[in-house]
């Protein structure tokens, strides 16, 4: 039968052994960190972004590298998912981008602070995360592109930066809003222009945000969607 001193030896032995292995692996993790996390790119701007990230408790809603809270989106790959112009516009006024939906605090960051955050996210995206977040294995594959679809390649830059985050053209883009290939069948120029200029005025409560677009930029997008180029 097991004696008390044998039980104690099991406890102490196991603890010391696994503790030593753990410390050894920690040392090795430090050794490998520069290559795996691109420490060379860890500039003061990245660190400044990191400080903004912690001082405002962003992980109280979001996750980063899967760590945080589950109230707001995972941000590890946010730069490639949304693109910098979209994020800049979003942080300035989060509710404008998702009217009537879940809210984010409006932080009134300066342009410089927003750039620091973006560099921080860029650095995070460069980390070797062992495959996280994984590509969704059951994501519906894009069907064959129908004849008469718009080509994303022809789109104005602002369209590529902002609109595709939610809408598809030519089978490419987001799935929040409807695909825009057949807009020209449903809208004329004044209606489409008015809609993009102020969606809430046309259809109160719509999820479509009022985007920060200059008049020429909006005109270019309308031209593109109506196929008038």
């Amino acid at each position: 039968m097991l004696s008390k001193s044998a039980a104690r030896a099991f406890f102490l032995g196991g603890t010391v052994l696994t503790g030593l292995v753990f410390i050894g692996m920690t040392v090795d993790t430090h050794r490998q960190a520069p290559a795996r996390t691109n420490t060379a790119a860890l500039t003061d701007e990245v660190k400044a972004g990191h400080v903004i990230w912690t001082e405002n408790n962003c992980m109280g809603c979001h996750t980063l590298l899967g760590e945080g809270a589950y109230y707001a989106p995972e941000l590890t790959k946010v730069i490639s998912r949304r693109g910098k112009p979209w994020i800049r516009a979003f942080i300035k006024d989060p509710e404008a981008m998702f009217p009537g939906r879940r809210k984010m605090v409006k932080y009134d960051f300066t342009d410089e602070q927003i750039e620091h955050l973006l560099t921080f996210f860029e650095w995070i995206e460069g980390i070797d995360t062992n495959g996280f977040p994984a590509d969704p294995p059951y994501k519906p594959v894009d069907g064959p592109v129908a004849a008469g679809s718009l080509a994303l390649a022809d789109a104005p830059e602002k369209f590529k930066a902002l609109c595709v985050a939610c809408h598809k053209v030519g089978g490419k883009g987001g799935i929040v809003g409807p695909a825009l290939d057949d807009v020209r069948a449903r809208y004329d120029r004044p209606a489409l222009d008015r809609w993009i200029q102020d969606p809430q005025a046309v259809k109160p409560g719509t999820a479509m945000p009022k985007l920060p677009l200059s008049d020429p930029e909006r005109a270019a997008i309308v031209d593109y969607l109506l196929g008038a180029q």
């Binding site: 039980a7 406890f11 795996r36 590298l65």
Partner: peptide, 22 residues
Amino acid sequence: VGFTFLSGILGTGHHYYYIGAP
């Protein structure tokens, strides 16, 4: 408690999967 430490110390690894650790 022997089993706790035997499994728990190195079990910390489940937090290190995706944060950039080896």
